[in-house]
Design a protein around this nucleic acid. Structure first.
Lengths: 137, 137
DNA sequence: ATAAAATCTATCAATATAGTAGAGTTTTGA
DNA sequence: TCAAAACTCTACTATATTGATAGATTTTAT
């Protein structure tokens, strides 16, 4: 399941993608427009900024705006940024690999192979879900 | 990610599936064979019993054994039993549906459609991973 | 009866989640 | 230059979940 953070992040990105080009959105606008607790959203937007999905302008008339095309922001990326690995176990993960400590046979645990198949399928599907695809549903 | 419970459940089922027909396995055997904390495994086996994947015999010479074909036990089922919904949000779930409370438009949240696509893909893949398929990897 | 095994219920520590609070910094325009 | 508006940063908190452990109870075979 997605965390609330990841869900809110997607909704915030969706909100930003629906604004006019060059429009800059204040946190409070996004919060109200997408129904997200404002103070929580502040943290999420900072995370999205660190992830280089959005950028911001401080001070009066400041706010947030997309710096990545809505066609290039995928569910996979947002999942990884907020919820980590897409694979079902760390030993089957591409980006968050860790050895299973409870596996006797060092490299290959009995589940790893099957879970890598799932990972590849899920990843492929998650890569196709972009912010743009969510708008034009 | 899978919980330890779900992971241990899969490993326990794998262990049981690898035993001779009619063999009955004591918890301690499974625990040592699959490297799972014994007391924790006890709970997991009871869950698997309630889920009708295994059955048990009490008393001396008792233990656990599969009552479902290893070809019919899928990752999807084990995920649902121990970790719940396969979908990324409750509003996109088949078996654990709940409305998104933060969605303004009652029935359709902006993410639902995309997440249902992911769910279908993941589910299809998870359905193909069976205990049998994990053995003959 | 006794030993071996499953079963049941309770408890616990550590961690993650979902937020809230408030002070600090930057920018703008009057 | 000053104040308001906005982002930024750090800390805190309540609650739930996870990953176990402990111990008493019940069942069965010999």
């Amino acid at each position: 399941m997605l965390s609330h953070k990841a869900k809110y992040a997607l909704k915030a990105l969706l909100y930003l993608a629906e604004q006019d080009e060059n429009h800059i959105s204040k946190t409070i606008e996004i919060a109200e427009g997408a129904n997200i607790p404002k103070k929580f959203l502040e943290q999420i937007l900072l995370d999205l900024k660190r992830g280089r999905f959005v950028s911001s302008k401080q001070g009066k008339f400041g706010g947030y705006y997309l710096i990545k095309s809505k066609n290039d922001i995928t569910l996979a990326e947002i999942h990884r940024l907020f919820d980590g690995a897409i694979a079902l176990l760390p030993c089957a993960s591409l980006n968050f690999y860790e050895r299973c400590l409870d596996c006797k046979t060092e490299e290959e645990c009995s589940l790893r192979h099957g879970l890598m198949i799932i990972r590849d399928e899920t990843l492929k599907a998650m890569h196709n879900i972009t912010i743009a695809s969510l708008i034009t549903k």
